[in-house]
Simulated scan of single mutants.
Amino acid sequence: MPVFAIFTKYFKKHMIKKWKAVLFDMDGTLIDSEWFYYKAWRAALKAYGFALGSELWLNELAGKTDGQAFEFLRSKHGFEANREEFFEQVRAHIAQQHEEETVPLMPGASDLIHFLHQREITMAVVTSSKREVAIYHLERNGIRHFFSVLVTRTDVQWPKPNPEPYLRCVQELGLAGEDCLVLEDSLTGTEAANSAGLTCFGVQSHESIRQMLNVDRSFDNLHEVREFLEKL
């Protein structure tokens, strides 16, 4: 191999980066699960005579914990149901869907993960899903081993939009906030990242939602994020 080619390969792998770690949101950013959970919630709500539209889901519920979403529907839309009975139905629909389909990675996720891994950039996942759910999706897609830290709803007292999940992740990584880049797709997630004082890129294919995100940069998908980072 020519000396120049060897140098170029070494430089690309070891070059100093602006960020030492990339913190991924999971649902809707890393894993294409928003529609998966939307279908389960829509089916459960239908039994109560409540029609859940996709815009309401994407604009108001995506990124929230189950409890936050339930409370939002109760307080803002007058939804009434026994909490435990309702979530039993949601879980039943989710279990049935798991038997019928696998929740895939978002477009460009695998490419971006390997791009960062090759450049020795630390990766973490910060999600509002419970720990067992997050591990299930990450392992089923064969990517769990790429992430040094996993912060879930189970691990914090206050989930997103509170900054606690991101602050905890930064602490566990042993890094300064300015060393970390966050990738998020929802209003709830970007608010959490901003409150934690972190640089946040919005990754959202729905233009109407993307325009509402208060982020440092916006991208349509993870392919675009990789292309941007490659130019740094």
Rank of each mutant, 00 (worst) to 15 (best):
S218L: 11
K20S: 04
F201S: 03
E84W: 06
R91D: 12
K76Y: 11
F36S: 06
E227F: 05
E60W: 01
E80K: 13
E227A: 14
R83T: 02
V151P: 07
K18N: 10
D179M: 01
A81P: 01
S54R: 15
L167M: 08
G49D: 00
E34W: 06
W57L: 06
D25E: 13
I16T: 12
S208F: 12
K231D: 11
L181W: 04
A95Q: 11
N221M: 05
R210F: 05
F146E: 01
M212R: 15
L138H: 08
Q211L: 14
F146S: 08
D216S: 13
E60C: 03
Y10P: 00
Y48D: 02
I143P: 01
K64F: 12
L229Q: 02
A5I: 13
L183V: 05
E60A: 08
R217G: 05
K20E: 04
R74K: 14
E132Q: 03
S195R: 15
K13L: 07
H206I: 00
G63D: 05
E178K: 14
N162K: 10
M1T: 11
F115K: 03
L73W: 03
V156Y: 08
H137W: 15
R131G: 05
A95D: 13
K18D: 07
I16D: 08
T152C: 10
L30T: 06
G78F: 02
V225S: 03
M106F: 09
E99K: 13
H223L: 06
V3I: 13
F79E: 01
N141S: 09
F146K: 01
H206N: 05
G53H: 13
H77C: 08
E178Y: 12
F11E: 04
Y136R: 14
R91L: 07
Y48G: 04
L181N: 06
I209Q: 02
S110V: 02
Q171N: 12
L23P: 01
W19K: 08
I135N: 05
R144V: 10
